[in-house]
Amino acid sequence: MERTTIDLWVGIFVALGVAALLGLAMKVGNLTTDDIGEIYSVTANFENIGGLKPRAPVKSAGVVVGRVADITFDPATFEAVVNLSVDKRYHFPKDTFANIYTAGLLGEQYIGLEAGGDEVMLKSGDKITQTQDAVVLEKMISQFLYNKASEEPKETASAAVSASTKSGDDALGSSPLDDMKKPVAP
């Protein structure tokens, strides 16, 4: 009679609670399904991935074409192996370039693909050989400080202020990025 309807409601209540807890749990784990349809996966090795996280977007020309599936560490080469799930609709040449970029100054990190000119396209399980690491802020700063320190003895004390601004521009504008533009040795 009355008792069973109450039981039913309490059952629904508890079930909702369990479902919500599962939902919360899946926010943490990687259990939610991708909203991209059919995918193929390629890997890319990086010396440093910075703050790249699983499920970060993979973009090409600013368009999301896939997601980072998972990130593992290769103990043989001491490199990060990043698995990319790319939408089946998009094909990229074999010599495609994979960069780790940061959205905005402090935003999330994502992988940008720059298509090369190869005739052969990437297949599932292939490896992108040309990669560029994440820009690590600390590295950039230490580079800048190092440059500044090496320049300092040449400068006169009176010009120190203007010199440091100048060298700052140099450090941020050219040297560290030049250093990092070098592709990882295949």
Binding site: L24, V28, G29, T32, P54, R55, A56, P57, R67
Partner: peptide, 24 residues
């Protein structure tokens, strides 16, 4: 906001034990 970024950032930064379990 990009839906993937919304969920992925959340997943990357919400800890099961430290955040969710402690809340419960």
């Amino acid at each position: 906001v990009d839906a993937g970024a919304f969920w992925s950032q959340m997943q990357a930064n919400v800890d099961w034990r430290l955040d969710i379990l402690n809340g419960v």
